[in-house]
Design a protein around this nucleic acid. Structure first.
Lengths: 219, 219
DNA sequence: AAAAGTATGTTGAATTTTCAACAAAATCGG
DNA sequence: CCGATTTTGTTGAAAATTCAACATACTTTT
């Protein structure tokens, strides 16, 4: 596990956990590392929701696909980020979303009950873990509010501009990269891809923005 | 505070807290009760996010209104339910939503830092409170997933049917009441009210459902 | 370097939504 | 109980989205 310590130290779940406690803790939690090739499922919609995932390397995407085949992208997670924690913490039977690896990825899986319910060894770090988990859940809720703010807009143009404005604000610059290609961006904004492309062209023609591939610049 | 004990005992924040501890605890937390007339703001968009709200009586609605005046309804909270906890827990500067009383309401406000950071009295219930808060945040995330599932649908008809199906499932019956009037339902589904009314009429004509006011029946 | 596959942009037709305006029904206040 | 207000339903026109089909650009593989 040692080789992942640099990533884990950045993971909010382990905030305030001393370095030399980490190894013992992971053992106590029964943490395991699993590798996934590109486009493999980490979690499948409908499967049981016992584990919290932590991305160690690569990229994992949370999606849902409805009855008619419309894919909806919930979020992307990269190294150090947590996913699936809400379903595991709420102790629901099955997950309403899928998690797939966008690249070859390594993922740490921790059974959530090991975090929530104090082990017999009385390790003493459970309280800190639960506190960290709570913080993470609160932060994730804010991310959802942001996504709702974006998708509640009524037109493709407004959705896109709201999303790009948030990106610019987060980066602190009008020039930035987004983590989505065009189809993914459409699935994140919940709009039609070709309509999105058309709208981007229009915005470019009107001098509102410049873009090449995943790079955007607001003018 | 005694007169609210029946409500507070049903509040998930106080799960597993002994009855005779509750009074002392509320005092220690600096909980205060505030009354609001109909249509008053409990929280205003942009204000600081320090307090968790608990509805003691009445009804509180979380909304956001965008630049163009489109109102978006996030959720309704009735007696025993918590609101605003995510912003307080995440310790963000300001709230991105408003909370307004739909009826004359009484609300308990607790400064979140009093829950998160152990007090000098060493009361010993903070760990349980934090655990409960974590559970609540996880549950709320599931509610958000549900709202996203609904609003990610592309047509008014699909959004409505998805929402009604979820209602029916929760109640365990095809006959149920919804907590929204038509305008509120439209704002929750993020669609135009008149379009929603037209769609409901169509569904009625097609024998898919029956409805009078807030009562719906799926056929 | 060519071929195959993938991603992006473009277009027009069909569908759907929004918007505005109004009528009818229900509710509220005195 | 009546008048005033609010809610709901209806309609048609304008705007926007979706859908399908295709052309072009870009990547990857062999």
């Amino acid at each position: 596990m040692k080789k992942f310590f640099n990533v884990l130290k950045k993971c909010p779940l382990f905030f305030n956990i001393a370095d030399n406690d980490l190894d013992r803790m992971l053992h106590c939690l029964g943490a395991k590392v699993v590798s996934f090739d590109k486009k493999y499922s980490v979690f499948t919609e409908g499967s049981s929701a016992k584990h919290i995932g932590i991305v160690l390397s690569g990229k994992v995407q949370m999606t849902r696909t409805d009855y008619y085949g419309n894919r909806s992208i919930i979020s992307n997670a990269t190294a150090g980020e947590i996913f699936g924690e809400a379903f595991a913490c709420a102790e629901v039977g099955s997950i309403p979303v899928s998690a797939i690896s966008l690249e070859p990825s390594e993922v740490m899986l921790i059974e959530c009950s090991h975090i929530l319910h104090t082990c017999t060894n009385n390790c003493g770090f459970h309280q800190q873990l639960i506190f960290n988990l709570m913080k993470e859940l609160a932060t994730k809720t804010l991310v959802f509010h942001q996504k709702l703010e974006i998708t509640s807009k009524r037109t493709t143009r407004e959705k896109l501009m709201t999303y790009l404005s948030i990106c610019a604000k987060q980066v602190g610059s009008d020039s930035f990269d987004i983590p989505f290609d065009r189809q993914e961006l459409a699935d994140y904004l919940e709009v039609d891809r070709s309509g999105l492309s058309a709208e981007i062209s229009k915005l470019r023609a009107q001098g509102v923005l410049e873009t090449t591939k995943k790079h955007f610049e607001l003018l």
